[in-house]
Simulated scan of single mutants.
Amino acid sequence: MNLADIPLRPGGAELLPVRCVRARQAFDNRDWVAVEIPVALEFNGIAHAVMLATPTDLADFALGFALSEGILLARGELYGIEEEYGPEGITLKLEVASAAFARLKERRRSMAGRTGCGLCGTESLAHVARALPALPPGPSLSKSAVARGMRELASLQVLQKVTGAVHAAAWCTAEGEALLVREDIGRHNALDKLVGALAKSTLAASTGFIAVTSRASFEMVQKTVAAGVPLLAAVSASTSMATAFAQESGLTLAGFVRGDDLVIYTHPGRLNGQPATARGFQQCM
């Protein structure tokens, strides 16, 4: 798929007047700027979270957020989404099953979202990491597929190429073909959009992997595990908490994916059959 074949999603960028300086010469111009606005999520009329986000693929975002946060256990628990536009931002009104709403009230938290904040406003330490089923052993993936997936993700970032200000997440097949790509100013939002799109598709999440343009933070790992995807490939590093959770959950976690180079933090046996005990102290950087 060529970049030219993918339309710029409406609402993702705004053309604004700017003052440029090039070769010490100043001139007036116009430039595309990524849109960032408050997006509120309501569940059965109850306000739950406000995130700063790019207003594209909002239905995917709402579904993916609800699934990755454990509010919904399946897509079928979401009955409908209404988008309400106002002067202060957008409200996504989700109608969910009574079981999902009861689940939400059990683990309610008030999140005052800001880009990349992740766990802002979590009410207790017990809400940080929730129990998730461990991922199954398969499938076997290749490092060349991971490299291809990261290349395709980069080539399909339409909004990033226009604005230079957004993250992206892609679901890739076992061969590395990026079939779903979502973008947002927030790395968590981009992944939630992808999780929602994946849940609405006919793709089997466990047969491929996710590639992201950010670091592999704890919440990125948790969202990947919640989606049932066995491998997360990140362009930047992992963190200690993300690595520990990936190890416990059976997730293969790869970082610093640059071309054919990468660092495998957990469960390397899923990549080219490398032994799971392949650990050492040689610095990879």
Rank of each mutant, 00 (worst) to 15 (best):
D57Q: 07
L159D: 00
G273L: 12
E14M: 15
A276Q: 14
E95K: 12
A126L: 09
G118T: 09
S214P: 08
W32A: 01
A205P: 11
E219V: 12
V128P: 01
A40Y: 04
S155D: 12
F245I: 14
D260Y: 02
E95W: 09
Q222K: 15
R151P: 08
A242C: 01
G186S: 10
A4F: 04
V39F: 05
T252G: 02
F256Q: 15
I210C: 02
I185S: 08
G12T: 03
S240C: 15
V229L: 04
C120T: 11
L179S: 02
T115G: 06
L104G: 14
D5N: 04
G208P: 05
L73V: 11
R182T: 07
M1C: 11
Q25T: 15
L191I: 00
C172K: 06
L67W: 01
P275G: 13
D5P: 06
A100S: 14
F218S: 06
L271T: 03
P139A: 05
L132I: 06
T224F: 06
E88A: 11
T252F: 04
S240F: 13
P10R: 09
N272F: 03
P87S: 08
M1T: 14
A197M: 05
L194V: 03
Q160C: 02
A59T: 05
N2A: 10
A233V: 10
R187S: 10
L104A: 09
R151V: 07
T277V: 13
T207I: 06
S68A: 15
E123M: 11
G269L: 12
W32R: 00
R24C: 10
V181L: 00
A49K: 15
S206A: 10
I210D: 01
G250V: 06
A145T: 02
Q157R: 07
V195W: 04
N44A: 07
L92P: 04
A100C: 12
V181I: 05
S110R: 15
R187Y: 03
D28K: 13
V181W: 03
G118S: 06
H127W: 12
G228E: 02
S249M: 08
G280M: 13
A169L: 05
E88M: 10
T252Q: 03
L231E: 03
A174G: 14
R130I: 14
V257Q: 00
V229R: 02
V146M: 00
A112V: 12
F209T: 10
A227K: 11
R107C: 11
A276I: 14
K193Q: 08
S124R: 15
